[in-house]
Each structure stands twice: as C-alpha cells, then as structure tokens.
Amino acid sequence: MECIFPPALTEQELSAALDGEAGSAVQQHLAQCPYCAGRLEAARRLEQRLKIILYRFDCPPSQQLVDYDAGLIDPASAERLRQHLATCARCGDELRRLQVFLDDDGEAAPSLRVVRSQRQRPGELVAQPRADTAAWAARGLQDGQTQDWEVEGATIFLELNHRAEGLVLSGQVVDETTSWTGALAELRQSETLQGVSVLDEMGEFHFVLTEAEPASLTITAPGGTTLVLESITLND
C-alpha cells in the first residue's frame, strides 16, 4: 500500500498527530489516506503499549507517600523518596493534593447509608460456592451445616451453627500461595456492617448474627488481596 495523496505524512506530522496537535491539513490527510492512517495507528499502538507498561512504574505507592508525609517511614526510605520527589511531578502533585485535602475541614453531611455496588474491583477475587456444596450440608462429625467457596486456589470453608447467642457463621481460608493469618474479614447484611473479625493463625474467623438474611463477606489479606463472597444464604 502507498500513500494516496503523496507525499506521505512525515514523522514530525505523525508525531504531532500523536500529541493531538496536528493541523487541519494533516487531519484531513489521515481521514482519507489508509496508508498514513495505518502508520499513525501503528505508532499509537506502540505509544499506548509503552505508557500502559511504564506509567509511574517507579513511583512509590500512594500509601507510602502519605506515610512519608506523616513522617512514618525510616530515614533511608525517606531519603530515597525525597530524591524521587525531586524529579517526579506526579508524586509532587499527589502530595500537594494531600495537603489541600488535610487542610479541608469543611462541613460534610455524613451519610449513614452505605450503598455498595456489585462490580469487581482491582485486587478483588470473587469466590463462588463449589457446585457440590452449593447448599448447606451436614458433613462428618461436625455439628453444623457446611458450604465451601472457591476462587483461584483459595478455598473458604463456611460452617453455620445455631447457638444460644444466635446464628454463628464460622469460616476458614485455606490457600497454598497467600497467607491469610491476620487478614481482615468484614461481614455485611443488607449493606449494614454486622461484624469485623481478624483471622487467626489457622486462617479462621467467626461472626454471631441475629438475622438469617443473606450476607456478603470480604476478607482482605495483609498483602491487599481481597476475597469477596456475595449472597451467602444463611437459611440452612
């Protein structure tokens, strides 16, 4: 294929088009010439690929930036951050916005109703009940009813028991790759928080509930990975 309106666009004209700064003649050429439009597309693809991979890859995580600002990191790390900040406009912007945010103590009517959407977020793994244990079932010598949930190598064993204090939902996370000791489990019913529990060294947790409404459970490992169990039915 060749340019149908020679001469073909120069590298400089293509570069301007990539930056969104091309003049109307270049834009018109690109609209009508498949050859030059293809060259621009190839250049844009490379540009996008580079930005996707490289975007702020050497910036410290935002949490580390706020720790630095709060004076909570060790001197050696603080020095590395200072050096980074000297050349990174993006991290500098983040810290400037942090200061504005901290200084803003304006009124904000707190909403007591927490509305959660069902979309999956980065770092979240949505578990599903295992097909053969989708319904609560008695198993072995255990007193209660059990159900197993799974996602990407992690299994969450749930057990439901009726006790004098209420409905007790116990669980354990078993995972060969991630440690769940010290993870944080949050249980909600009808978008209302029912309890927060810290997983013990066996990856176990438990909640006492007064209602048998469907529940959602999120379990976050210290490394940030979050397991999500939606719509756990509590009617055995």
Binding site: Y55, R56, C59, P61, S62, Q63, L65, V66, D69, A70, E94, R97, L98, F101, L102, P122
Partner: peptide
C-alpha cells in the same frame, strides 16, 4: 484521612 487520600489516588493511578 490520609488513607482516604491514598485509596483514591492509587485507584486513579492504576
């Protein structure tokens, strides 16, 4: 409050 800031900034960065 700083953690609110970092949660939003990291999300947008990602």
């Amino acid at each position: 409050k700083r953690c609110v800031h970092s949660a939003i900034e990291q999300y947008l960065r990602d």
